[in-house]
Amino acid sequence: MNLAVIGYGNPLRGDDGFGWRVIDMLRSEGGASDALLESHHQLTPEMAELLSRLDRVIFVDVSLTGEPGEVTHRELVAPPKLNLANIHQFTVETLLAYSSQLFGRAPEAYLVTTVGASFDYEEVLSDAASRAVPAAVRCVRDLLQFPFPASAGSI
């Protein structure tokens, strides 16, 4: 199995760096199931090439709406093709579509997120996001481990 965990966001903007912290924690714990661990400032098209070589990928991101600190995950599905309104930037779904349409295959993919509370110019997470890091790490580990993880839901 080729596995990867990709955290993305701007670590200089508070909770936007959540994905980085989750990757850091996975690294400091000595990795996770031989998965490739990567942190990125933003999603870029060339990641599609990496994706096409993976069996499973877990993205870690932060979202804006909801109860700060809540950790959720959902399975991602590559959009069936066009007819999707207004994709103006690279989302994880865009990347998956890139992967499947340009390179012939896309991995099983999940998105783990928490809800951010502060996006100021700082390198520290808010209390809520900080508390969510271990939960997100557990969530990532579960998703990496289980062959058929539970479908979307809260933990």
């Binding site: 098209p45 060339e46 599609a48 090439e49 959009p79 093709k81 066009l82 999707l84 207004n86 994709i87 103006h88 690279f90 865009t94 579509a97 890139y98 349409q101 340009l102 390179f103």
Partner: peptide, 17 residues
Amino acid sequence: NVFGVMQKHPELAKKGI
């Protein structure tokens, strides 16, 4: 959008990558 590009010019999108 990029999907449109992919569909109309898949090789170009791939080369960009």
